[in-house]
Simulated assay, not measured.
Amino acid sequence: MKAFVMEAGQYKLKDMPEPQAQKGEVVVKIHDAGVNRRDLGLLKRYGDNPEALIIGSDGAGVVESLGEGVTAFNVGDEVIINPGLRWEQNSDAPPAGFDILGMPDHGTFAEKIAISAEQLEKKPAHLSWEEAAGLALPALTGYRALFTKGQLKKGDTLFIPGAGSGVATFLIQFAKNAGATVIVTSRSEDKLAQAKEIGADIAIPTDSDWVKELEGQTIDLVIDSVGGATFNRSLDVLKKGGRIVIFGATTADNVDFNLRSFFYGQYQLFGSTMGSREELRDMIQHIEQHDTHPVVDRVFSLDEAQEAFDYLAEGKQFGKVVLRASE
């Protein structure tokens, strides 16, 4: 089968053996797979390893065969893949042994995958294949950051620095579903307009004076994945006693901030990563209840995987970038 792999310090398209379902596993024929920013950095971690590893965390497809003991699914079922491994119940932090599909295990950027039946959920019927393919990792990340960690409630005001990522588009939609006011930033006028189209109430330029632009707004919650470039600016507009949730650091891992101002302001700082299977199921129920559709920016073929990576690395997307593995 065709697959996009890491091998000997390179990303490449390669023919790989078709997987077989072992005990407790199923083989899923992948229809579409979602590309995440995580995928872009895996090569640095994998190094010059000569063994080909299929990458990719998100995907949706059809159950093709069942291993011994699998009773929860049938051949022909339409499913999405839960990329969070070995994290079943909601907890304050991931348990020991938690990992994300696509390294060290073979991932979804292939025509087929063999995976534990425990990692599958029924595909929401209202979603297209490309919408379902890019759902699990970014939507679960956003759902946990917003509700489990951020404790967003109706009437709150949410501030999101950076409006174009897949997670940000879910944050906007989920927060509006919950009855919150949403404020976003972007350097792109197009992305500011697109953010308002999917529900953002206020959209301001990233390079503007946030304190001036947001004068009169009471921001209850900030959810930030940009990192060093925006952390202190976010604190400047967050209300005293407000909450800030960090789930990424695309600009810088380290940041300096004034501890005295922080504790006098009684701010609450939370870290968040992905989420549990319990939260994934809650998130799926949420999008079904509210008829929420993921925002898909572009669909590339599996042969165009490197082009899709380049497109995502340049930050051109608004929403999800998807690979079409099979028709």
Rank of each mutant, 00 (worst) to 15 (best):
H106E: 06
A132E: 01
A114Q: 06
G164Q: 12
P138E: 07
D105C: 00
P104T: 01
A178S: 04
H126L: 06
Q119V: 05
A110G: 05
P104Q: 00
S188L: 11
H106W: 06
A125R: 01
F147V: 02
K176G: 04
T169M: 11
T157Y: 13
V167G: 02
A117H: 05
G134A: 12
G142A: 15
T185Y: 07
A145G: 15
L171M: 14
T148M: 08
E121T: 00
A163G: 14
Q151D: 14
R144N: 09
V184A: 10
T148K: 11
A163V: 14
K149F: 10
E118M: 12
G162L: 12
G179Y: 02
T181L: 07
V184H: 13
A163W: 14
A125W: 00
P138W: 01
E130K: 14
F159A: 10
T141K: 03
A178D: 04
A133K: 01
A139N: 08
K176E: 03
K112M: 01
I160S: 12
A145R: 08
G155L: 02
T185K: 09
D156H: 15
I160D: 13
G179L: 03
E189K: 12
T141F: 08
F174P: 10
S165G: 15
F147T: 03
K153M: 07
G155D: 08
I160F: 13
